[in-house]
Amino acid sequence: MSGSSAKSDISIRLLEIFDAIMRCGTTVEAAEQLGISQPAVSNGIRQLEAQTGVTLFERLHRRLQPTEEAVALHEDIKPVFGLLRGFASRAQDMRQGISGRLRVIATPPLGHTVAPIAMRRFLKDRKGVSVAYDVRRLEHVVEAVQSGNADLGLALGLDRHMAVNVEVLARTHMVAVLPKGQETDGNTVTAATLADSDFIGLEIESRLGQMVRSAFERDGAAYNPRVEVRYCATAAVLVAAGIANAVIDPYTAAFNRSIGIVERSFLPPIEVAAVLITRKGIPRSRLQHAFISEMRKALSDFETAGVRTSPVRSSRDDG
């Protein structure tokens, strides 16, 4: 084998060490995660740098600082190691005798409301099934599904995405929420009404925040929130404290009625879809179909309970 060929044959173990350091930040933590010694990690990085001819880390004050080249290369291999970690996790489940494992990640509006109900029903008669569950921001949900670190993603307001499959489970509308005891006359609240007083806005960089701002613009109302928050649940808490009114998703509103808020229809209407996010090119397992079916039922139950949704039926998810 020639010298140039030998340099191109970089072992998966060296890349694994590189990935661990990039994620952990130190050789000590990387060694603990990989179950090897700290010198072995340091030697692996030196060997990888020698083989690639690229300086990956600067040694600063006994710490490794990734170079720009290291960051760029790590972006290329992250999806690979996401898949490998998923494979290792599934293999461990099989070795422990677990019959199935489902990895679900959701944004807060669904992750803290409807999805837990679906999960309780899903697990009730499946004693041999475990679930890895996380609630994160939308960009993290998409990334986890795309990289193979999650089987299913749940979110609000995502119409489409080039990197993943997006399927609508139900359609609903954002609602205005007011402190209990400070309700307005009538069943609706307009953007113009909110603009005439203090109101709580959603982070404008978020998809829901952009949708609310667009509704104000359609109504010719100024969008100048007195308080801006990242999550609808945070807005609900501030509304209950009597700070101001807000526009949030109906699921979060329904789950926070007990803390002292009331809901009103919001005009102009802001339609928002509850969506399922899956990885492209990967067939759904029976566990995934079962959970999706429970999710559809839970969304339908919310409609019955007074949350105005329009479930989107699919025969694929009845199994």
Rank of each mutant, 00 (worst) to 15 (best):
Q210A: 14
V104Y: 06
R90L: 13
A195P: 07
I270Q: 03
Q33R: 15
A236V: 02
A31W: 10
M1Q: 06
S8M: 15
G53M: 09
R63Y: 07
T55A: 15
I21A: 00
R137C: 10
Q38H: 09
K124A: 15
T184S: 14
D198P: 08
V80D: 07
Y231M: 10
G281P: 07
R313N: 09
L169E: 08
L158I: 13
Y223N: 01
E228G: 00
S37K: 12
R90P: 00
A170V: 06
G148I: 10
S42V: 03
R101C: 12
V135K: 02
A40K: 14
I77N: 09
R171W: 02
H61T: 12
A241T: 09
S37Y: 01
F87D: 11
S258A: 08
E69Y: 06
R90V: 08
A253W: 05
V229Y: 03
T193H: 13
R226W: 01
L34H: 05
N224A: 14
V41S: 05
E29C: 01
V189Q: 04
F81P: 04
T184Y: 10
R218E: 13
R101L: 11
G128K: 00
Q96E: 15
L110F: 01
A88Q: 13
D317M: 05
R59G: 00
T304R: 15
V307E: 06
A246W: 01
L138C: 00
F255H: 05
L156R: 03
A236L: 09
I204P: 01
E75I: 00
